[in-house]
Amino acid sequence: MSQVMDNATQTERLLTTSKAIAEGIAQEMERDPSVFVMGEDVGVYGGIFGSTTGLFERFGGDRIMDTPISETAFIGAATGAAMEGMRPIVELMFVDFFGVCMDQIYNHLAKNTYMSGGNQKIPVVLTTAFGGGYSDAAQHSQCLYGLFAHLPGLKIVVPSNAYDAKGLMISAIRDDNPVMFFMHKGIMGLGWMTPLPSAMAHVPEEPYTIPFGKAAIKQAGDNVTIVTLGIMVHRAMDAAKQLAAEGIQAEVIDLRTLVPLDTATIVESVKKTHRLLIVDEDYLSFGMSGEICARVVEEALDYLDAPVKRLAVPDVPIPYSRPMEQFVLPNAEKIIEAARNLARM
């Protein structure tokens, strides 16, 4: 198995997240003939969000398979093929679309290993794009990773940048369990999205893995802990710069995976800063932010000098119109304000 690498790498090559993911998939396909890709528009198009760019030309239609719009069939088929020893990567374009095939995911993909008493491996990687901020409205802007994390039996990966995305993708493919790989559209480096240069990274050409359940401390600080993931890592880092100018040192934690969740790193940080802000682009209630809050309360309540603060979508579907959408989504300004208030307590 290849080595785990740190963020400081020996390469100068800058890649977008979509190219890093495609490269990770290609390298695993070269290494392991049981790896193949299925999904809508993953072939000639290269994936609507670029995660299979160039793979069809390189591996052909037998291993990069465009599917009909038949998600119950092709996601169920991924489970079936995996149970026969294949390692399918299966894409369902937008996470908002999973309603059409949930049974195959939450009753089968997620449970067959358990129901077989651990005898059945199901090495499926289920990729999907998520997130809003570009006026794609209520059925194309959700996050929903909290919903899938709620279901036992699925590992939940949510990278924030190109370097992590490649390492986490290779780990996902090699994992013997179902892994859902969430790609925030805004970090992919797509030509038609608002550019986010900080999501590009120096990505080593050779394969490497990043372990699940190991958060990254993007910036150390003593005054307030900001826990987040995906594109909100970048918003939090922007906020941290401004906060530093005001004399508030924020510690920014990028979870990288929700399942497994690196509770230890969060708790360790809270014991140092005594203040916790959770930033989540998903819905507020019954989700990631509540779960992290609960774990910190369970393990480090006595260390908190202020109530835990959560920034998340206030339990409304994502509205289309720009002023309303910007009102409900977390952003750097809201993070600054929330962290500033926490630091004053």
Binding site: I69, D96, F97, G99, V100, S135, D136, A137, A138, Q139, H140, P317, P319, Y320, S321, M324
Partner: peptide, 25 residues
């Protein structure tokens, strides 16, 4: 039609009994 909540994929008109969705099928 929806006070800006829906947008171009989600047009609802109760008088004309029209609705649409961004989800296939």
């Amino acid at each position: 039609l929806g006070h800006g909540k829906g947008g171009h994929m989600h047009l609802f008109d109760q008088q004309k009994k029209f609705g649409c969705s961004g989800i296939i099928g």
